[in-house]
Design a binder for these strands. Sequence first.
DNA 1: GATGTGACTGACC
DNA 2: TGGTCAGCCACAT
Length: 107
Amino acid sequence: MQTTFFEDVYAVVKLIPYGKVTSYGAIAAYLGSKQSARMVGWAMNQAHSYPDVPAHRVVNKLGRLTGKHHFATPNQMQELLASEGVLVIEDTVQDFEKLFWNPTTEL
DNA sequence: GATGTGACTGACC
DNA sequence: TGGTCAGCCACAT
């Protein structure tokens, strides 16, 4: 199967454990192109076509929900995270370092 | 088929 | 210390 960068991104995002979050850069780095973080963001843009992709668990390196505006409703992202036990205040994931899931380390 | 754009990041001035 | 620039790749026009 000829996996594209996108599909690889989705595959990794799907592996993010419940209640954990990761960053665009971490995923990009795992895929071997840490400079392609933008592509990861673009992949999330298309994530709507992939119901199994928990895009809400992907935030920027600061733990900020930069992409929330791309969800059905701006609060959906926060709500989803909150339902998983991830505290989000003002678009920022609290205890981000503790909840951070590094695919390069974990996989 | 070529060009522009995008939910980011790191380096440079 | 803070703003700007370049780089990556797929998709839309």
